[in-house]
Amino acid sequence: MPEILDQARTQVLGDGVGLDEAGVLAVLNLPDEHLPAALQLAHEVRMRWCGPEVEVEGIVSLKTGGCPEDCHFCSQSGLFASPVRSVWLDIPSLVEAAKQTAATGATEFCIVAAVRGPDARLMKQMREGVAAIRAEVDIQVAASLGMLSQEQVDELVDMGVHRYNHNLETCRSYFPNVVTTHSWEERWETLRMVRESGMEVCCGGILGLGETVEQRAEFAAQLAELDPHEVPLNFLNPRPGTPLGDRPVVEGKDALRAIAAFRLAMPRTILRYAGGREITLGDLGTRDGLLGGINAVIVGNYLTTLGRPATDDLKLLDDLKMPVKALSATL
């Protein structure tokens, strides 16, 4: 057994203390033959510190495309020759999307907008949309609207948004290679305000942007320092027309190593499968990740791409005897 896994067994599984950057790097560098042991340990950590429940979420794009920012992986930036056009979702369709999500047994519905930060029109749409969902659908509402002012943070709390997603996307040292129109520190500042407001913090990123293994470890350590309630883990799905459109997808084993390593860095967080798992891991790998530290999934479609049918994921959870977290358990 590699030393790092012995250390993690005592420190992370036993004491609930996550691995530091060097420890995460050691896990990311484990040879293939030790990957099953790393996944097994990460699974034990998840079961011990989070339990067997899986949190199920659906997401929807309230405002698609036309974003002024230049995140190099994103098909919704208006600065690239991406075929994604700008479009707004109306409130009846938003409520319908929340209903469809709740029907899968999901407890979370995240409303997302492709913006640098919300303007008055978007905040108005949010206020009406969240109120309509809360009146008609039994589901918790989360939001992801870019960088916020303190006033906007307070408004979202007032609307009843219980969790806010704002991804750091990648580690601090690599971020300027991926985004030039705003800084990692600006994102961090929004996260700080969200945390202080009492909303739950959801913050993750994307692997496969061209970061090194060391930078992946740096990212895990920075997320652990933030200590978010939830970490969504995406794997790059290279989008036509974006600067990262020709990058290779993350190799399945590297994705699984990252899942185990991120779980060992953050024993108590909700570690969620987000975009890109279908192409990076396929069905078998998806299962391996759920037995290797993942304890939450996005079901159904994403913002501009499609996912597997929700029923496939729910069947897998049933096969794995992992109960879907109920709404009563989250309130």
Binding site: G58, S61, R85, S86, V87, E96, Q100, G300
Partner: peptide
């Protein structure tokens, strides 16, 4: 795993809304 982006009749870029289902 993607919706269409171009109209197959005329090649115009379409306004595409992806929903959970």
């Amino acid at each position: 795993l993607e919706p269409p982006r171009y109209c197959a009749h005329c090649r115009r870029r379409m306004k595409v809304q992806v929903l959970p289902v």
